[in-house]
Design a binder for these strands. Structure first.
Lengths: 228, 228
DNA sequence: CTCTATTGCGAACGTTTATTCGCATTCAAT
DNA sequence: ATTGAATGCGAATAAACGTTCGCAATAGAG
């Protein structure tokens, strides 16, 4: 931030600018997000904008920061109520919450998430993963038997990204007639809950027909020992 | 295409332009993909570019078309060799193929996939899903017992998007030290193979503690009957 | 009230880029 | 060889946008 707002009016203006930035992005998309638009929307001049934000990116960063905080609070709010449930219910509850969250704010979260690789949403995603890991850990204290807890970082990564991006793509779908939201949540719940409670193949028969390596399309060399 | 190339030299030029477009995008990213750059790279003038492509988007569309075809051929090429394997091996083989494919072309596929929502990659993704469903169907003819085949469109959607975007995000990771590629493939294999061969909860105990709905963060109303 | 630091303004500037247009060059049919 | 169509060129045009700068309005201390 180029200058610190000391008087009250300027502080309000900074808030209004961040808010307006969110509105513009939600309505017009990140591509058409311009400083002039934001200034107009906030009933502020462009010059004033640049008095408090070094440039466009700084404004965007401030917005992302604010939303990041919101997300953290959301997770902390709903997590405790789910710790008593069984794994399936926990996963389903988190999924519904994620659905509601991503769809909120007039699609602002979605638009930002679509552009995850340009923004430092990388950090947000990572933080989100961490939060989920904490929930998992807290959950483990009450349901030790149900889950295998030797999760390396890979499992969390797989789950978070599978869920978030699948939801994102579903919400971006022009035609949602093929299957509805609840169906999707159920499918994801099945997949994730199964994955969580199963570190190894479940079907007794497939245990016998062990790891017969397939020839990959493009030949590759040294591969790690298969730790399942 | 604004004008059809009838002579041989112009046909070559069109090809060169599409090829150059891919190179520019792979090297500079879609953001810095400009018509002048493409023309220079193809040793062609900008004016000539606009003689065969109505605008920048048309050029991009032509590129996507070409890559879409490539992808289809890739899948058709590797699919037959996997039909004999067990589900785990099938999934693992497809995953490795997807990994190799996405990483190819100097990151061109990745850069395009990152921008999936701006391009009509929607169509490509959908086509990819269809292909996967065909493979699954073909696979079912030989391994009837191992899989539940009442897959609605939702299951395919979940799998495709989970896998593709998780791979995409992994490949976009600045620091890949946390876990390596093979580890990721194994995790995804576990998850997907488990999901495919299990339509309902596997743990006998969790069958008893049935669908105790969690209160979602934001209250929502009529929900569909839970078809698992 | 007076004075100064803070705040606010928005036209103007410079850069970047897509797209066009008038003219030159090449092809291929006669 | 001639000629008309096809092809190729790249400076010029125009629109969009981020950012600056000089000046006006305002707040709050003394």
């Amino acid at each position: 931030m180029r200058k610190k707002p000391v008087q009250q009016r300027s502080q309000q203006m900074v808030d209004a600018l961040i808010e307006a930035a969110g509105q513009v992005i939600a309505e017009r998309g990140l591509e058409h997000f311009t400083t002039v638009q934001v200034a107009e929307r906030a009933n502020v001049s462009v010059g004033s904008l640049y008095q408090y934000f070094a440039n466009k990116d700084a404004l965007l960063a401030a917005l992302v920061d604010r939303l990041n905080r919101e997300m953290g609070e959301m997770v902390s709010r709903i997590a405790p109520s789910l710790l008593q449930a069984d794994p399936q219910t926990l996963v389903r509850g988190l999924l519904h919450a994620a659905f509601d969250f991503l769809g909120g704010r007039e699609g602002l979260y979605m638009e930002l998430l679509r552009n995850w690789y340009r923004l430092d949403i990388q950090r947000s995603l990572h933080r989100f993963e961490q939060q989920m890991l904490e929930i998992t850990r807290a959950y483990a204290l009450t349901h030790v038997a149900d889950l295998r807890l030797d999760h390396g970082p890979a499992k969390g990564f797989v789950i978070i990204n599978s869920v978030v991006f699948t939801l994102l793509r579903y919400l971006s779908l022009p035609n949602r007639a093929l299957f509805d939201r609840d169906r999707l949540v159920e499918e994801l719940t099945t997949m994730v809950a199964g994955y969580l409670s199963a570190g190894r193949p479940r079907n007794p028969r497939s245990k016998a027909a062990t790891v017969t390596r397939a020839k990959p399309g493009t030949g590759r060399s040294k591969r790690n020992p298969v730790r399942i």
